[in-house]
Amino acid sequence: MKAFAVFALLAVAGADLAPRYGYVQPSYGYAPSVAYAEPSYAPVRVAYAEPSYDEAPVYAFNYAVADDYSGANFQAGENRDGYATSGSYSVVLPDGRTQTVTYKVADAYSGYVADVSYSGEAKYAPVAYKAAPAYHAAPAYQAAPAYEVEQVYEPLPVYQSEA
């Protein structure tokens, strides 16, 4: 056992685990020769002309959806000429009315001005309400049956005074 401890101590002392600083370039006996072509920096030809965004946008669009199967019924449209924008959109509400929003923006400083209107009369379907039955939870715990304890002593007699 002592010999093992001595050998272990010598192995730890002999192991040189101190970090080495610096790097030694390995020599392989040959130097690879690499030849690259000189890059050419010719101007790149442009395949398209850069669009100019200086002019004010002008557009108009409209769309509408009327699907009887799903019940979807809505439409929208907008016109824009420069900063002046106007449009409207409408949707059929669940109560049967049609909500129409008409909006306009006169210029960049006037802001968004909207006019909301409703057409039609609200119709609500009668709801047949039936109260759910009352919930009575079953007891989760069953108590063990009670048992009578036998008396192991005799109680003392109780005397009543004659007063």
Rank of each mutant, 00 (worst) to 15 (best):
K123L: 13
Q99A: 07
V6E: 11
K123Y: 06
V34I: 09
V24F: 08
A56M: 13
A131V: 14
A56E: 14
V24P: 01
V116M: 13
S33V: 13
S27F: 07
V101P: 06
P145W: 01
A56H: 09
A13T: 08
Y103M: 01
D68E: 11
V152W: 04
D81K: 15
Y28K: 05
F74Q: 05
V127C: 12
R80M: 01
A8D: 11
F61L: 14
Y129F: 13
L9I: 08
A122L: 09
Y118W: 12
Y124Q: 15
R97T: 05
E38L: 03
A138G: 06
S88F: 01
G111L: 02
Y109V: 09
D54W: 02
A108E: 00
V34L: 13
Y23W: 07
D81L: 12
A163S: 14
S88V: 04
E50H: 06
Y41H: 05
A106Q: 05
Y63P: 04
A163W: 10
S119A: 15
A47R: 04
G29S: 07
F4L: 13
M1L: 15
A114C: 11
A114F: 11
E150I: 00
S110Y: 05
L156V: 10
Y28M: 06
G111S: 03
S86L: 11
Q75H: 13
G71H: 00
D68M: 13
V91Q: 00
S33C: 06
A84M: 02
F4M: 15
Y59P: 03
T102F: 04
P133R: 00
A108Q: 03
Y41Q: 09
N79T: 11
A42N: 11
P39K: 10
P133M: 10
L17F: 12
P155V: 04
Q142R: 05
V65Q: 03
A134R: 11
H136R: 12
A72N: 05
V12M: 10
K2Q: 09
A49N: 04
E121W: 09
E50Q: 06
D95N: 08
A144P: 05
G14S: 10
A5S: 07
A11I: 02
V116E: 14
Y59F: 15
A137Q: 14
V46I: 14
Y124F: 14
K2H: 13
S52F: 09
E38D: 13
T85W: 02
P19E: 11
K123C: 08
M1N: 12
G111T: 09
V65C: 08
S161Q: 07
V127W: 07
A134P: 01
V158F: 02
A49Y: 03
V44L: 08
S27Y: 10
A114Q: 12
F74W: 01
P133I: 02
N73V: 01
A47I: 07
S86N: 06
A15F: 10
L17N: 13
A13L: 15
D16Q: 09
Y159T: 12
A5R: 02
A3K: 15
Y83E: 02
S88D: 07
A143F: 05
A138T: 15
V65R: 11
G29Y: 05
S119T: 15
A134D: 10
S88P: 01
